[in-house]
Amino acid sequence: MAKLKVYDPAMCCSTGVCGPKVDMTLVGFAADLDWLKRQGVEVERYNLSQQPAAFVANAVVNEEVRRNINVLPILLVDDEIVCRGHYPLRNELTDMFSLEAEAYPGLLRVISQNGD
């Protein structure tokens, strides 16, 4: 099975519970990655503020970041960029790995869930 690497921007926690408001996009994405793992995808996740070495070590990511830091998050599948600048929804993730999206309330996760 393919390998997914996620390079997050600098943040306190990758699930977004550490801000003055919980970021539901991050919560949903963390759940999706958890689901992908259960489908057998190998997932690695790096946070710029916690694992900066990973951003130095990977040449592709390093070049992107040098050009523009706002490109984060970057997602790589087998070292090829599959998504940048936003967190993909689950249907995008399932497409990346040709998986069947099972019935799941998060399938059409709405980013605007953030509203007050």
């Binding site: 926690c13 519970v17 919980v22 919560v27 949903g28 963390a30 689901w35 259960r38 799941y104 998060g106």
Partner: peptide, 24 residues
């Protein structure tokens, strides 16, 4: 509660664990 509509039980369990962090 806000997350419940969008997460399955695994996602919720994950979130619950995160919310146990002392930062919370």
């Amino acid at each position: 509660e806000a997350a419940a509509a969008n997460l399955d039980q695994h996602g919720l369990a994950l979130l619950e664990e995160d919310l146990r962090s002392p930062c919370t």
